[in-house]
Write a protein that binds this DNA or RNA. Structure first.
Lengths: 351, 351
DNA sequence: CAATGCTACCCAAACGTTTGGGTAGCCATC
DNA sequence: GATGGCTACCCAAACGTTTGGGTAGCATTG
């Protein structure tokens, strides 16, 4: 804790310079330039004196002054559907850490996946003069992204991808495939998918990966076995109800593309007197901290959420350097737990 | 979406002034002062022309330049134990909304409840020159807070309170009392409390409220019926195990001061072959969105989390105006669900 | 010994605002 | 017709940095 160390005014470059009898620019170069520049700016002795005094007086550079001059704020704007979505919260934790490490600070705002809000929040961030944006709520149609590109706003996507733009995501197709493989292996032949929102690549990719692998294994699955839903618990419950309400043999396994939806589905199953893990297997996605600790622990695809956030920061740094980084797809891994650990029950008839 | 509307440079006050043949200061006053000052600064006609042009060129004021001059950044720093704690995430959503409404932007950072990290993060925020802090991870010992006060850093507490400092919290004592009343009424006489971390007022108050009411109702509860724990699911499970492992009659009800701990406890109960809501009642706290949607819906004390965040913003605004606002305690309400809806089972002997 | 090249600095302008203090011109008042 | 009081502006300094371009003094080189 420095600054105002002794109750007085904030100490500035000029203060240091005056005290030492050198010019502020010299102090600036010593303190804020790479050692290469600093070398040319002052003798080793002077540099030492500068640094000592800075430490002693608790000098802390004024970022607004600096960015006024440099036209860079070292601020990152992050837009997420909602921070109360654990998945995004953890990604943000990754962002926060990684950006701090490179001297950036991050803002977050919620868009609630509403296009108007997305625009509004982006405008707010740009008004704050963020150097770049990390967009965690990209919609596949991507009109907004084209607009940002046209306006030369530096940005990268996170969590959800849209082809053609740099992004840091989990490899959700592979994730879906793993689940299909697992359920098939456990003997399931009748399955349903709670697929999430069709505007999100996470939902699309996980579902597509699942379906592709399922079919290539020889499984059959029809369109109405795929139920689109919100990503939250309520959405999962609703979707679960819908699956059970159909007049066809109930599935022996359900893949929900999101842990919360899976938890909702578990609720629906239980209300129908079914036991998760015995009567019906359930698999979620993301391996949120809850999954392992639920009364019936939930099989889930682990996605490296914090790493995705960290990667997003790396990518935006690259973009800010003028590069055009490739999309990064991080590897998912399946964690098998009680909710899908038993072999498929014998075929059941319409419920 | 404004700014750089036509690909060119950012438009400044000076640009507007030049174009209109007036002085930048006039433009500034018209655009950024209350209508009172603006009145004296320009004729109605000029003011109109200024505003029109500003709109047309998509002028957006540079906040760093402004704060360099005014010495206020309109930035708020928020420190939370972790953003991946749903409770804090929702409070932050409240902060985000409320601060945007008054022209402020908020930063969040995680402290992981670690004193060193708290210091470090606070320093980072101050280095960014935030106008004030909202502290969501206050520890009851409060050494850090005294220090901040000494340094005249404006701050308010949120979620957790520490006597003597302005804070926005749920009235956790009342919350604990309600739970005690409910469980007593349902016929429970043998109960245990999963109490959370002793450095957090939330844990202390909820537990104290519960114990006080319980005893005043005639109930008995001993020290080892109160188990301290982490606030997360794993902590709850552990605490649940501990409660079941004691060599005394198992309680017929458990109050966990936090929904996640409650979920963990439910898991522990189930592993012991007990059915939540029948064999053992469980009550949580916060009524997070999960509670209602769990396979066995969880009785929980609803606390107005988003409002607490919003209130925190109001309080910090007051502090910034130089006032010394009273602590705000928002009202909790109990939501009774399946996990505690049945009357207490007959007394059980040691398990 | 003049030219060259360092080293270790200094200088000044600029970034986009805000704000306390002018002042020119006009009208009303005494 | 001097005084006072508006109205509608203008002026300039300041906020704390950064950075391109000096330059004085000294040592080295041809």
């Amino acid at each position: 804790m420095k600054k105002k160390a002794d109750g007085g005014r904030t100490v500035t470059l000029k203060d240091l310079a005056q005290e030492l009898g050198v010019h502020p620019s010299t102090v600036s170069r010593v303190l804020h330039s790479g050692s290469d520049v600093a070398k040319g700016a002052a003798s080793a002795a002077t540099a030492e004196r500068v640094r000592d005094l800075a430490r002693k007086l608790g000098y802390s550079p004024d970022p607004q002054a600096a960015s006024l001059r440099t036209r860079r704020t070292k601020l990152l704007g992050v837009i997420v559907p909602r921070l109360s979505d654990l998945v995004l919260a953890i990604m943000y934790e990754g962002i926060d850490e990684a950006s701090a490490e490179v001297g950036y600070s991050a803002f977050v705002m919620n868009s609630r996946d509403d296009p108007d809000e997305q625009r509004r929040k982006i405008d707010l961030m740009l008004a704050r003069r963020v150097d770049g944006l990390i967009i965690g709520d990209a919609h596949l149609d991507g009109g907004l992204l084209q607009e940002l590109t046209d306006r030369k706003v530096p940005f990268v996507l996170m969590n959800r991808r849209v082809p053609g733009y740099p992004s840091a995501t989990c490899n959700d197709i592979v994730g879906g495939e793993i689940v299909a493989g697992h359920l098939w292996e456990m003997g399931h032949r009748q399955v349903a998918v709670i697929a999430g929102e069709p505007y999100a690549s996470t939902a699309i990719d996980r579902t597509a990966g699942f379906l592709d692998r399922w079919r290539s294994l020889g499984g059959t699955i029809s369109d109405d076995d795929v139920v689109w839903s919100k990503f939250d618990t309520a959405g999962g419950r609703e979707a679960g109800e819908k699956i059970l309400a159909r007049g066809k043999p109930r599935p022996t396994a359900i893949f929900a593309v999101n842990d919360f939806a899976a938890i909702g589905a578990m609720g629906a199953l239980r209300s129908h007197g079914l036991t998760v893990g015995q009567d019906v297997a359930v698999v979620g996605y993301n391996d949120t901290s809850l999954a392992a600790e639920l009364p019936i622990p939930l099989t889930s695809v682990h996605s490296p959420m914090a790493d995705i956030g960290r990667t997003a920061v790396k990518l935006i740094q690259a973009v800010l350097r003028g590069e055009k980084p490739e999309p990064a797809q991080l590897k998912p891994t399946l964690l098998i737990r009680e909710s899908s650990a038993a072999r498929a029950p014998a075929e059941v008839s319409a419920s």
